[in-house]
Design a protein around this nucleic acid. Sequence first.
DNA 1: ATCGCGCTTCCGGCCACCGGAAGGAGCACG
DNA 2: CGTGCTCCTTCCGGTGGCCGGAAGCGCGAT
Lengths: 281, 281
Amino acid sequence: MSRRDDDQGGSSAGPSVTARVLGILSAFGPGAEALTLSGIARAAGLPLSTAHRLVGELATWGALERGEDGRYHVGLRLWEVGALAPRSLGLRERAMPYLEDLYEATRQNVQLGVRDGHEVVYVERLAHPEAVRVFSRVGGRMPLHATGVGQVLLAYAPAAVQEEVLAGPLPALTPRTITDPQVLRRTLAAVRREGVAVCDGMVDLLAMSVAAPVRGEDERVVASLSVVVPSAGAEPRAIVPAVRAAARGISRALGSPAARRRPLGIVTTPPTAPADAERGA
Amino acid sequence: MSRRDDDQGGSSAGPSVTARVLGILSAFGPGAEALTLSGIARAAGLPLSTAHRLVGELATWGALERGEDGRYHVGLRLWEVGALAPRSLGLRERAMPYLEDLYEATRQNVQLGVRDGHEVVYVERLAHPEAVRVFSRVGGRMPLHATGVGQVLLAYAPAAVQEEVLAGPLPALTPRTITDPQVLRRTLAAVRREGVAVCDGMVDLLAMSVAAPVRGEDERVVASLSVVVPSAGAEPRAIVPAVRAAARGISRALGSPAARRRPLGIVTTPPTAPADAERGA
DNA sequence: ATCGCGCTTCCGGCCACCGGAAGGAGCACG
DNA sequence: CGTGCTCCTTCCGGTGGCCGGAAGCGCGAT
């Protein structure tokens, strides 16, 4: 795959054209929305002339666009194709109405995320301009262990993924971030038991998040949604039911049989058996 | 031999590797969110083995993902990069709160679109599950002349673009769609004069849309937003002010000086001079 | 004026890409 | 139980597309 400059054992190969093109796309990211040609070449590790040729083709197609200042940014055409990702469009489309309601009820921050590897990717975010500042953004990534959405996704992830995360480093974003694997393990068990994760001050000391799992047609947890509220004077008890209800509503819209079976109402006593059994799956 | 299909040089660019990769991405689209390898090869006009190799690389990087049924769909990684497009993320981020309010007030459909060539691309859409069925979708395209959002974007587009559209074919989506260039020309003038477009039954006989322009920091129209309501018994007068106010709010959030200068209120008498002068720009 | 930076174009050599062909897996049918 | 599909995967020799150093241009700063 990565045929960098590594010449090993006889027949070596340079990076394929495809890899170079993807490398150019990788040069863009949060905090690097617009780049000069040289900047792209530098970031992608390509000679300037090569970058020039490839970027030119990408721009012609519409994957990149050139601003008035000469810098390149991601183009509308690429966004269009990306919008077809089922984990974005299909999920978002059905979840939106529920996120709406939750946003309207709290006027704070509502987030929807999916897991990719050892990170959570935020697929949607509704934020009131005057709400607590949240570090996340649509398309952004965060570690699983430190956020509400992430802890939920991790709690219901395959056992292998959980062990990998527990074994790896657990960076602290604030003094209150969980960094002890044992504490995290117990927290995940609690999340499975309660069906909701409450993270207070783990990303930002001033913010608290309440998250719940969203299930797909095969009952697997496919996403997680959360509400972020100011840490000071927050009352989780008032929010937890709303978050759980919204998560259940989305699960139902996605075709989750369990969410359809139980007609809402007994949210205060979630079933523990299936939740714990899930970890093995 | 290798470039046999289009080696005449007549049709578009030669199939460089980059072009082939982009061709693969182009194979996906609304109604084709998941494709088999052969399907991709067919759609992109590539030999199966070539498609196999390129798709494999794309999947390794995360641009494509392979579902459990073996079919490929657009991957989360590509969505992430696409989300960096300034015309999507930057615009959406600031517009969301206003779209929210508009959605909350109408409980129907709210749309935000930008122009790309001779089409409008919908960047955001809030829809109530029980609202009028709307044909558009996030990431979807529609012709400029037939939709509210499109007419606004066209009315403030560069003169060259307007002439191209007026000269080209104007396909009818319903019997009420504008197909006469002269009628369209007068309609666009009215849009500039009024600062809003009202499209009744042009996309769907049962739906009506009210659209208004969104301006950026340099006063140019960068987007357009609309509300779609049932055609029957609709009262535009009740909606127009709300749409105009929301559009102005977004313009202000984007840094439009004019929107900042005028403190809301005299929306019934919009300035005609700058609006008409704009067409020349 | 001189420098530095970034962008664009050019072109010969070489090697990575191409794609036909062969083989395997799964499924529907007679 | 063969037969005929469709789809996927792998292999390999020939060659033409890609690579990237180098030169030239435009612009702003010193």
